[in-house]
């Protein structure tokens, strides 16, 4: 174990961990929203993310950009980023709604048992990722260098880059808006009502089907933003990009308390940090093993996650 390395690099590890964690947290919201309302783990959420990560690349491709392009001017970068975000958000949102419509709604109509949902979830996930795999010959796809990481400020040996700031700020802003929507708006109140007591929600006139579509959509929007950030950060994507990150995001959701929005944020950031500290402490090859051992330990102490379960109960 390399303690001196961890202490020496604590600053840089923390900032990379936070940026990584912000992406995981955005991704995790989709699991938590759907679980909060349906008590269902939407395993196909990783492919909602996956299609978002391709959507922005395709749009950037329209402008003749690929991984070998030069970085465009600042003004075009802003425009391209916005277009990429819109494309990813739209495609991820549509994918999420589509998964709900095709894989889950028919089962719900027939009152299927929870295991049936699990199977269709895995089935939908595999179907989408394999289709992407076939269409891309399982090759990686490079991301145009829209943002050349540059130090914005330096504290000791901690170099904070423009990309890291973008990721963290965008993630926090999106989550803040989502939180406002869920906690302040009428539709948000409808979502919380279904999460807390579906029968009572129906007695208040809440259309459960619409609430379900809405949470899938919201989770999809967040995954779309996460996907663009991921592309820019990692520089490549691939048909199975959603898989491991999906497991991490799901874990983050459980760690924070599944069904709890603020738990997803906390869980995501914590997982990002843990991974980076663990990589430094035990070596990069142990990154996932070590961070998951730590997670299990945390869950042993707090089985319902750090902030506790339930979308509704998490209040300001």
């Amino acid at each position: 174990m390399n303690f001196s390395g961890l202490i020496q690099d604590f600053g840089p590890l923390t900032i990379t961990g936070l940026a990584q964690g912000a992406i995981i947290a955005l991704f995790a919201l989709g699991y938590t929203l759907v679980y909060g309302v349906l008590r269902l783990i939407n395993f196909a959420h990783s492919e909602v993310f996956l299609l978002g990560s391709y959507a922005c690349l395709i749009v950037w491709g329209f402008f003749g950009l690929d991984q070998n392009s030069a970085t465009p001017s600042t003004l075009s970068v802003i425009g391209l980023l916005l277009l990429g975000l819109v494309a990813a958000i739209v495609i991820s949102g549509i994918t999420a709604l589509g998964v709900e419509l095709v894989a889950y709604r028919p089962l719900r109509k027939r009152n299927a048992p929870p295991l049936a949902f699990l199977i269709t979830a895995i089935g939908a996930s595999l179907f989408i990722s394999e289709t992407v795999g076939v269409m891309t010959q399982r090759n990686i796809k490079g991301v145009p260098p829209l943002i050349q990481p540059r130090d914005v400020f330096v504290i000791g040996n901690m170099h904070v880059t423009n990309l890291q700031i973008l990721i963290i700020v965008l993630a926090l802003m999106s989550m803040f808006l989502l939180d406002r929507f869920i906690n302040r708006s009428r539709l948000g109140r409808g979502i919380r009502a279904v999460a807390q007591n579906p029968d009572s929600a129906a007695l208040m006139g809440v259309n459960k089907g619409r609430v379900i579509s809405l949470v899938f959509l919201l989770g999809g929007l967040m995954a779309g933003i996460a996907a663009v950030m991921y592309d820019l950060k990692i520089g490549v994507t691939r048909f199975d990009a959603g898989f491991l990150l999906g497991i991490e995001a799901f874990t983050a959701a459980v760690l924070g308390g599944i069904g709890n929005l603020r738990g997803a944020l906390l869980g995501g950031l914590l997982l990002g940090l843990l991974q980076n500290y663990a990589a430094s402490l035990f070596g990069t090859e142990w990154l996932h093993a070590a961070s998951f051992v730590l997670l299990v330990l945390i869950l042993l102490v707090r089985p319902t996650g750090l902030l506790g379960e339930s979308l509704g109960r998490a209040r300001a």
Partner: peptide, 10 residues
């Protein structure tokens, strides 16, 4: 409803 069905988190 029977059992009141309050939204506990609201």
């Amino acid at each position: 409803p029977e059992g009141r069905g309050i939204f506990p988190g609201m």
